[in-house]
Design a protein around this nucleic acid. Structure first.
Lengths: 116, 116
DNA sequence: TAAATTAGGTACTTTTTAGTTACCACCTGG
DNA sequence: CCAGGTGGTAACTAAAAAGTACCTAATTTA
């Protein structure tokens, strides 16, 4: 259970690194952008992020929960366990940055898929 | 020489991922912030980023050059080779995002150095 | 000529992150 | 009781990123 944490004993040299250690995870930006639309269930996220394994998805969701960017509510309605993930206020506060990164990427990196 | 490239055959699912593949590197944000102050020589960067090995520093500088965020000019003055790195216009255009990440990190992650 | 400085390169190892596969627990309808 | 869906865990493997140690080359000064 140690891989889900943002930081262990190693402190970050600067706050950007701390932020990067969150959004630098492979699926985190995508997760955030999906949850920015509306809360999603685990299965829905899995479908939306085809290519991301259950394990990694859960791992990165845990990372986001641990750092207060998203929250999880489990409701055992009639038939099934509904496990829903949604952005917290803190998570929402990160969205402008994520979206700025998206815009920047669109403008500057579009043609760099196959270098060398 | 293949690890210095932003992308190989794998295309990114979304532009945020492309941006992340740049600033998600451990020392890249710090390098950018240092170069945002003024151009630096290789040795100066090394001193400023104590903890970053030569190899990784060079690797990440190359990554930034390949993607047009910084440029390198070598001048062989009287005594020594001066190899100077500076931000390009594109590199400068990324700074607002990096600085926003820094601000966000300061506000939200300051006390999360030792979780669990 | 030898030492020191500056900017690199290369081989190898370790650490971190991601992916695969298989499994468990809970609940429900038949 | 059994199949099927939902959410999750554990063990293991693979790939990517970072770190270590040692090497080259040009030049300048003692």
């Amino acid at each position: 259970m140690k891989e889900i944490y943002l930081a262990n004993d190693t402190s970050f040299g600067c706050p950007v690194e701390a932020t990067t250690s969150l959004i630098g995870k492979k699926w985190v930006p995508s997760i955030l952008m999906i949850l920015n639309q509306k809360p999603h269930r685990f299965g829905e996220l899995q479908t939306a992020l085809s290519g991301c394994s259950k394990k990694v998805l859960k791992q990165q969701l845990n990372l986001l929960i641990t750092n207060g960017l998203i929250s999880n509510s489990k409701v055992t309605i009639a038939n099934m366990v509904e496990s829903t993930y949604q952005l917290t206020t803190t998570g929402e506060s990160l969205m402008p940055i994520v979206l700025a990164m998206k815009t920047w990427g669109k403008q500057h990196l579009i043609c760099q898929r196959k270098l060398a």
